[in-house]
């Protein structure tokens, strides 16, 4: 529980990672909301800069004309993945205190399929709709309204869906655990797939 930089150094020396800061008690709920606002602002900034606030640019991914979605998403995934791996390795972060989403096989498959159709019909996702709306795009606002309705529909139907929602639970299953490979090998594999994808995307975009 580091309250200062010197204390954090001692913690690292004793083999106790000082981070994630919120999990080691560095600050409380109210402050975490400020953190959320700041992180969200940076997130929205980069999304707009990358062009993902534009529905036409975003759907280009699914028509093979503009691979910005793939590039932004996978660059972000690889960056955070490598960053977390090495900060953990250096003893600065306890990776087991980072919340890993739980795996529910059928719901995630079904939800993914429905989400994908909605994504190509709507042209933006829940996060990028906010960026589009604040850039003046009225379709962004319509999407936000649609999403609220979709969530409401789910919630009202929930009692009928509860059994399905709780089915095929596999815990915090990670690719290393599932494949039996060391974490570092999976990290390497994901990076290779991303880089190969980038090379392919560049080639496909270069064609007229």
């Amino acid at each position: 529980m580091a309250a200062s930089a010197p204390a954090a150094v001692l913690q690292v020396a004793a083999g106790v990672p000082p981070a994630p800061l919120y999990e080691t008690g560095a600050f409380g709920h109210e402050a975490s909301l400020v953190v959320a606002l700041l992180l969200g602002t940076a997130f929205g900034w980069f999304l707009e800069r990358g062009g993902l606030g534009s529905a036409r640019k975003l759907v280009g991914q699914f028509y093979g004309t503009d691979f910005a979605v793939f590039k932004v998403l996978f660059t972000a995934v690889v960056t955070a993945m490598l960053g977390l791996f090495w900060l953990s390795r250096a003893g600065l972060v306890d990776p087991y205190l980072v919340y890993v989403p739980r795996t529910y096989v059928l719901p995630q498959l079904a939800g993914g399929l429905v989400f994908g159709v909605g994504l190509v019909l709507g042209g933006l996702c829940p996060g990028t709709s906010c960026v589009a709306a604040s850039s003046g795009r009225l379709d962004g606002l319509a999407l936000i309204a649609g999403m609220l309705l979709g969530v409401l529909a789910f919630d009202e139907m929930y009692p009928a869906l509860a059994a399905f929602m709780d089915s095929t639970f596999a815990g915090a299953l990670t690719l290393p655990a599932w494949t039996g490979l060391p974490v570092g090998a999976v990290v390497f594999g994901v990076t290779c797939v991303a880089l190969a994808g980038f090379a392919l995307a560049e080639r496909l975009e270069a064609k007229p």
Binding site: F85, S88, R89, A90, V183, G184, F188
Partner: peptide, 9 residues
């Protein structure tokens, strides 16, 4: 990461 394998020190 591939060489090192594990994310813990």
């Amino acid at each position: 990461a591939l060489l090192v394998g594990s994310p813990v020190p």
